[in-house]
């Protein structure tokens, strides 16, 4: 099997994928880990924005991305995809949401389908790094404040013009020096 065919098997995700999975320490072992992930994934599809410990959020993100990309790629008539969705999503009405709401929403996206932000830790209560995971295009207000357009503030106008003046001066010097160079060469010969 050559390389091109492998890339056809699994859809390429638009997030960084960790080389090794996270164990997510759990009394029930690997089974408990999967249980935890299924619960979180279900909640993510249900609420669209969650605040979690960073490790759990990061681990969930990969599964969510994969599930959405499979849903977009194969649709709800593909048996394997449907089985996968059935395994990962605990509340069964959310399977409809995955195929009928999320897949159409994300079908034109050129970016990842989820976002992961770092959240502040409430020192000294919580020592583990917190984070916020969300589906893009959710109805909530944006987490990061929108950037002000400061280009027209007086100092930026002045600095921009100073930059232009500096460049104009430099270009003039360069053209001057270019004009002088050939003469030097001629005199050398």
């Amino acid at each position: 099997m050559n390389q091109a065919e492998i890339s056809q098997l699994v859809s390429k995700l638009r997030i960084r994928i960790n080389p090794r999975h996270k164990n997510l320490k759990n009394p029930e072992g690997p089974q408990g880990r999967l249980k935890k992930l299924r619960k979180t994934l279900t909640a993510l599809f249900k609420y669209e924005r969650l605040e979690l410990n960073y490790t759990l959020a990061d681990e969930t993100r990969g599964y969510a991305e994969r599930l959405i990309s499979e849903a977009i790629r194969h649709g709800d008539t593909h048996k394997a995809t449907m089985e996968m969705a059935d395994y990962w999503i605990e509340e069964k009405q959310l399977i409809h949401k995955l195929f009928k709401v999320l897949a159409p929403r994300f079908s034109d996206y050129k970016t990842s389908y989820t976002m992961l932000y770092r959240a502040p830790k409430a020192y000294p209560d919580i020592v583990y790094p917190r984070s916020i995971i969300e589906l893009r295009g959710n109805p909530f207000p944006p987490i990061l404040s929108q950037k002000l357009d400061q280009r027209n503030f007086i100092h930026n106008v002045l600095l921009e013009e100073a930059k232009k003046a500096y460049r104009a001066e430099k270009y003039e010097q360069i053209t001057k020096s270019l004009g002088e160079q050939p003469k030097v060469e001629v005199s050398d010969k």
Binding site: L148, D149, Q150, N152, F153, I154, V157
Partner: peptide, 15 residues
């Protein structure tokens, strides 16, 4: 004011 949005152009001129 100096940080008037969308554009403080007229403030800057008056300033």
């Amino acid at each position: 004011h100096a940080q008037y949005l969308p554009d403080p152009y007229h403030f800057n001129r008056a300033y």
